[in-house]
Design a protein around this nucleic acid. Structure first.
Length: 512
RNA sequence: GGUCCGUUCGUCUAGGGGUUAGGACGUAUCCCUUUCACGGAUAAAACACGGGUUCGAUUCCCGUACGGACUACCA
């Protein structure tokens, strides 16, 4: 009997969802689609002190932007809700109680100061890893050391307490990870983690296991930072008696700094000028605004393709994958083991590839939107022509007009280096003649006609066209490089073209 | 410090007991071209180190180094 695949993305709403989290969500999504299963989103907000307003909406909008929305979520609940742990608060105590009853958990009354004192004492005694465990718990204030009536009295009087898991002294805990293979840990290195906090909220460990079980999760795909606590989770499944339906684990490699070593951080992003977040994020506490992939001009499908390849590959030489193709090709087995350094160059390359594959109509929409921001109006037809001409040389949609500004505005100044080298009497002669021909033209100026007229002008002046093309470009665009000139002429139209040449002829000094 | 995880060109990676160790990004050169870009071609560029096992190891095993994660009443 095989269960329907159910996977979840379980972020904590403590700020903007960062790129590593987005990748985790993506892998979960791909796996669910591939296996015909369900992808759900659960908000892990058991720590009220870290709750950040707006973070949940941010997660939702980020996934929507990328087109990887969950099948079940707080805003689109399935039959296993609620999908926010804060709203599930009442459910957890009975499970903690179950562990208490079975002797796999106990009450602990130690204050923060007492815990601190314990750690200091242990450190002073050169204990290698000071922790609340099978040995040290016997010196602490808990239901294992205190007389039963005192425990009872403390509980009844409302003394603050936590519930801790009772980790066995000597036990080998094994787990099979789909990415890493067998991982073995000895229970003596584990500590008695808090399961229920004194505020009545469960910790991640308890809530996570209970919810995954209740929500019938079959595969846990999450970041490698969770690998050290996975043995504890295995133990909890065992103590609850849920081992037969325990999900399979897959711990993803981490995203690392582009240079040097270490985990990818906000500082690296700032240093290298690349974003870390899918959408723009304003920190509600500081008002600080963080840049985003979307706002820098990354296309969602390109970004997704790039993200998928950060730690995964299809095993062949293909690089460009639509979401559908990613779903088709994705397997957990092909996820890599080692950390991945983040390289923004590859992201840009993906963006270029996707940009070039977009239709002129699609790109014209981006262009028109950008221009509207600048309060510039051009026709749909003209926008499409510009898009067609510029898309081969753009990385982001905004480049369409940033790099092609001269198609909308006549040059006010001319590149001096180019003028020095290329502006000469021959060029002036041909341009003057060409300008006259353009002005005298009866119909519209298209690229072919422009070329024809320019050839004519050159021949009449007995000048080789190749010698003066740079000068012609300079006169019309103000710079020495750019897209096909005849296409530019067509977009400009004959009046604008004639006007620009006249202006250049007037401004630029003629050399002998 | 302890536990766990990892290590193939600068980067992302394929591969796997015998290979000219493959691809992509980036870099360089050439071709195309009215320029720049695109596109095409070519080049430089890697198995961390030391021991085993083996006829043979980059591949398997052990160790070392290096890197990372975790080590909270945070997730």
């Amino acid at each position: 009997m095989s269960r329907e695949v159910r996977v979840r993305f379980a972020p904590s709403p403590t700020g903007a969802l960062h790129i590593g989290g987005v990748r985790t969500a993506l892998y979960n999504y791909l796996f669910a689609r591939k296996t015909g299963g369900k992808f759900l989103l659960r908000i892990e907000d058991t720590d009220q002190t870290r709750f950040v307003p707006g973070a949940e909406e941010y997660i939702k909008e980020s996934l929507e932007w990328l087109g990887i929305s969950p099948d079940e979520s707080p805003w689109n609940p399935g039959e296993y809700g609620p999908y926010r742990q804060s709203e599930r608060k009442e459910m957890y105590m009975q499970y903690a109680q179950d562990l208490l009853d079975k002797g796999h958990a106990y009450y602990a009354f130690d204050t923060a100061e007492e815990l601190e004192a314990m750690r200091e004492r242990l450190s002073a005694a050169r204990v290698v890893s000071p922790q609340y465990n099978s040995i040290t718990r016997m010196q602490m204030k808990n239901s294992l050391t205190l007389p039963a009536d005192e425990v009872k009295a403390r509980l009844e009087s409302g003394d603050p307490y936590v519930i801790r898991v009772k980790i066995p002294r000597k036990e080998e805990v094994r787990l099979q990870d789909k990415v890493r293979g067998w991982v073995m840990v000895h229970s003596s290195t584990l500590d008695d983690k808090v399961l229920m906090k004194s505020d009545g909220m469960p910790t991640y460990h308890l809530a996570n296991i209970v919810d995954d079980h209740l929500m019938k999760i079959t595969h846990v795909i999450r970041g490698e930072e969770w690998l050290p606590s996975a043995p504890l989770h295995v133990l909890l499944y065992r103590y609850f008696g849920w081992e037969d339906t325990m999900p399979e684990f897959a711990h993803l490699p981490l995203l690392l700094k582009p240079d040097g070593n270490g985990k990818l951080s906000k500082r690296d992003a700032e240093k290298h000028g690349f974003p870390l977040f899918p959408l723009m994020w304003t920190d509600p506490a500081t008002g600080q605004v963080a840049d985003s992939f979307k706002d820098q001009g990354y296309l969602p499908d390109a970004f997704l393709n790039f993200l998928a390849f950060l730690g995964w590959n299809p095993g062949d030489h293909r690089e460009i994958f639509s979401v559908e193709e990613l779903v088709e090709a994705f397997t957990i087995e092909r996820i890599g083991k080692s950390g991945t350094k983040f390289d923004i160059h590859k992201a840009k390359w993906y963006n270029e590839q996707y940009l070039r594959r977009k239709s002129d109509t699609e790109l014209a929409a981006y262009l028109l939107a950008d221009l509207a921001q600048e309060k510039i109006e051009i026709s749909q037809q003209k926008a499409e022509k510009i898009a067609a001409l510029m898309k081969e040389r753009a990385t982001f949609p905004a480049d369409l007009w940033k790099e092609g500004r001269f198609m909308l505005f006549a040059p006010e100044a001319f590149d001096e280096a180019v003028a020095d080298k290329k502006w000469n009497a021959d060029a002036v002669k041909v341009l003057a003649s060409f300008q006259a021909k353009v002005s005298a033209l009866a119909g519209d100026l298209d690229a072919d006609t422009a070329k024809h007229l320019l050839h004519e002008a050159a021949e009449e002046s007995e000048v080789k066209l190749g010698k003066i093309m740079q000068a012609v470009r300079l006169a019309v665009t103000g710079v020495g490089a750019g897209p096909d000139l005849m296409q530019v002429f067509e977009i400009l139209g004959k009046e604008e073209l004639a006007k620009r040449i006249a202006f250049a002829l007037h401004i630029l000094p003629v050399k002998a």
